[in-house]
Simulated scan of single mutants.
Amino acid sequence: MKVTRQQLTNAASANIISAQQADDLYQFLQTQDQHSARFSFTHVLYYLGGLVAIGAMTLFMNLGWETFGGAGIVFISLFYAAVGLLFSHRFAAKNLIIPAGICATFVVSLTPLAIYGLQQWLGVWPDDSVYRDYHRYIQWHWLYMELGTLAVGCAIAWKYKYPFLMMPIAVTLWYMSMDIAAMLTGGDYDWELRKLVSMYSGLLMIGLAFWVDIRSRHSADYAFWVYIFGVMAFWGGLSLQHSDSELSKFLYFCINLLMIFTGVLIVRRVLVVFGAIGSCIYLGHLASTIFRDSWLFPISLTAIGLGIIYLGVLWQKHERDITTRAQRFLPRPLRELLASRN
């Protein structure tokens, strides 16, 4: 819960705390929160500049760099990486954690380019594809670039411990799930297998994100990006599955409801958002197919919606008692994680 200056002023007006205490507490909270990403103009400039620099070396890379040859690409990438680490150290020395983390992330994002250049230099690049295709197409031979990026990303994240460093790691894991499917199919477009690989690899990423969440519960949010791409891979693979069985479709609805409940429990909005979209897709299926000509379906759905609202009223009324009793049965690390989110 974010505490504003106005809320503290209101607390002082209600004689809960003094005006001096309200001011001191606000200054303390500002100090504690200065390194957390938030929607301020300063942080927008930080991330906008960082994403432009990262995008220039990844998504927006053009064919002009091919003229440097493999060796040239390697040495230029190493020079850029050195500059990125230099800026990261200087920002960290000035206690500017957000830009320091962005610069370190820029270094990790250079890794696929450097490995591509190295393969070109050594003459082991397998076809006529170029680096800019890495972010556009699915190919099995991108795996070398992805494994190298994971190794460098994990090493830098372990040393510097900036939460934003998890972003390229999460993106790389997402890319790997698609490229592994291409490797297993020999490059053929076997979409059934690809959907299954995406679903199960996404589920593994969600499990990894939860493990990271537990381990980092007393520090920064390192699991944010892993949750996002894990949920995208899992939910995308799940939603693209085809079945003519109404039972399977209902199970899909139940899985999405479970995602919503889990997202609310551990305060992860990405689970709630995708779960809500999946639930709406199932309800749309019922409205357009099963109950297409039934006048009772909209009435029943309205009653269910109002019932859910009433359930929310009851939950708000008894939330503390229910939560306290339920958390007695949870492991201590999970209780501490939930307590840090409330």
Rank of each mutant, 00 (worst) to 15 (best):
I180K: 02
A93V: 07
M167C: 07
A182C: 11
I102S: 04
Y144I: 12
V107Y: 10
V130L: 10
S129A: 14
L51V: 10
V108T: 11
P99L: 10
A170V: 07
W125Q: 02
E146N: 01
T149W: 00
A92E: 14
A170M: 07
E146S: 00
L85I: 15
P126K: 05
L63G: 09
N95G: 08
F60S: 11
N95T: 12
L147A: 07
Y162W: 14
K159A: 13
P168F: 13
F87G: 05
G84N: 13
S88V: 01
L110W: 01
M183L: 15
M167V: 12
A155Q: 06
L147Q: 00
Y160T: 03
L143P: 05
G55M: 09
I73A: 05
T111Y: 07
G153H: 01
L86I: 09
P112S: 04
A151N: 09
S129F: 08
G64Y: 09
C154Q: 06
I54C: 14
T185V: 00
L59K: 08
G187L: 07
G123A: 04
E66N: 10
V107W: 04
P112L: 05
F75N: 04
W125N: 02
A181W: 04
Y175V: 05
V130S: 11
E66A: 07
V152N: 01
L110Y: 01
W140G: 12
L51T: 13
F164G: 01
I138Y: 08
H135G: 06
I169V: 14
Y131D: 01
R136D: 02
H141D: 00
G187Q: 04
S77G: 14
I115H: 05
Y160F: 14
A170G: 09
M166R: 06
G55W: 08
G49Y: 04
V107C: 11
R136Q: 14
Y116P: 02
I76K: 09
T149L: 01
M166E: 11
A82I: 02
G101R: 04
W140V: 04
P163I: 09
I98G: 03
L96N: 10
L63D: 13
N62A: 13
G70S: 07
A92D: 15
N95I: 05
L143K: 04
I169A: 08
L150Y: 04
I76S: 14
P99K: 04
A114K: 01
D127F: 03
Y160C: 03
I54E: 07
S77K: 06
W121C: 13
A170C: 08
G64E: 12
G148E: 03
Y134Q: 00
T149S: 01
T105Y: 03
A157G: 02
L78I: 11
Y80W: 12
L118S: 10
A56G: 03
E146L: 00
R132N: 12
T67E: 15
L165M: 03
P112M: 06
P99R: 06
Y175N: 13
L143A: 10
A93Q: 14
F87C: 13
V124H: 08
G72S: 02
I54H: 07
F87T: 04
P112K: 03
V171R: 11
L86H: 08
I54V: 15
L59C: 02
A92T: 11
G84E: 08
G84C: 15
G187M: 05
R136L: 14
Y160A: 08
I156N: 03
F79W: 10
